[in-house]
């Protein structure tokens, strides 16, 4: 028990850090689901492409050891843009190639699902064949300096960056969807797509925009993941994709603020599950929590729909 108390502060810190990455992933699932009622299973590969995009940018910049001073900020901006671009372009292409033709033919949601899984395998294998199946290390771009301590918990620079960047991106996305003209388009399509079309909303543009936004969030998550864990692999998106999807369902799929909440709750449940029980029980604990939440709130913690997203 004493051991557990010692682990409380670090567990909170780690839970929030991993939760921030889950939340960014959850946003991609939730946006697409809100607009198309489709689980985009290729989203994990959108994330994977983002990690590779930031890694290749680092290689192209010739960065092999930790940059210092202002260079850090520059490097960060460049790899963030690269990862966001890589992921968004992938997401939009996936929509164009794998979903839109099916949507135009009014095919069943099952066909969409299979198409999503197919794209997912396709991307994984292309990357595996091109770059091998081993873990590929990142150079260290940010020293893991300890800023200050709370008990045994270390507030580390890289963790602060992960959480702050994630929160800023989430805020920007929330403002975009809830406060701009284009965002209103997204909400309109989410609410009732056929009526939105009658009101003059270009549904194809809105769908593309949705995938673009989801991809951009996955790109930021990918950059943060690469910076934090410093590895990538052809199937790196698989586990993180499942966690992101779980977080989205937990918070209420189709609901942006629900995705944020779901991500942080899942992150904390995982680290505390590991601290109270043992590491081998982490998934048992987190999915038990998911089932319990869904038993009492079948639409997730904050409820389902995008247009009714109120905190």
């Amino acid at each position: 028990m004493h051991n557990f108390l010692v682990q409380v502060p670090p567990s909170i810190i780690d839970g929030i850090t991993t939760g921030a990455i889950y939340a960014l992933m959850a946003l991609g699932y939730t946006l697409v689901y809100g607009v198309l009622r489709l689980i985009n299973f290729a989203h994990s590969e959108v994330f994977m492409v983002g990690t590779f995009a930031s890694l290749f940018t680092l290689h192209a910049l010739g960065i092999t050891k930790t940059p210092t001073g202002l260079a850090i900020v520059g490097v960060f901006l460049i790899i963030t843009i690269a990862a966001m671009a890589g992921s968004s372009i992938t997401a939009v292409l996936v929509e164009r190639i794998a979903y839109r033709p099916l949507r135009k033919r009014n095919s069943s949601s099952l066909a969409n699902l299979i198409s999503a899984i197919g794209v997912s395998f396709f991307l994984q294998e292309v990357y595996a064949l091109r770059y091998g199946r081993d873990l590929i290390p990142f150079p260290r771009i940010l020293n893991k300096t300890v800023l200050f301590r709370i008990g045994e918990g270390e507030i580390r620079l890289d963790k602060v960056v992960v959480v702050v960047v994630a929160l800023v991106m989430m805020f920007v996305l929330d403002r975009f969807v809830n406060g701009t003209r284009l965002g209103r388009g997204i909400r309109a399509v989410a609410q009732d797509s056929s009526t939105a079309v009658l009101m003059g909303v270009n549904i194809d543009r809105i769908v593309t925009l949705t995938f673009l936004l989801g991809g951009a969030m996955a790109g930021v998550a990918a950059m943060l993941y690469g910076m934090f864990y410093e590895v990538t692999q052809y199937n790196i998106g698989f586990v993180i994709g499942i966690k992101g999807f779980t977080a989205a369902v937990l918070g209420g799929i189709g609901n942006i603020r629900g995705a944020l909440l779901g991500g942080f709750v899942l992150g904390l449940v995982e680290t505390f599950g590991g601290a109270i029980f043992h590491a081998q029980w982490v998934d048992v604990v987190s999915f038990s929590v998911l089932v319990l939440v869904l038993l009492f709130r079948p639409t997730g913690i904050l409820g389902e729909s995008l247009q009714r997203a109120k905190a």
């Binding site: 045994e152 790196i236 698989f238």
Partner: peptide, 22 residues
Amino acid sequence: TSQSVDPTAPDYSSTVNAIMAS
């Protein structure tokens, strides 16, 4: 401390915390 981890999981922070606390 004695733990089993999932070899495919990206994050081992709870295991790391348990090791540090032990």
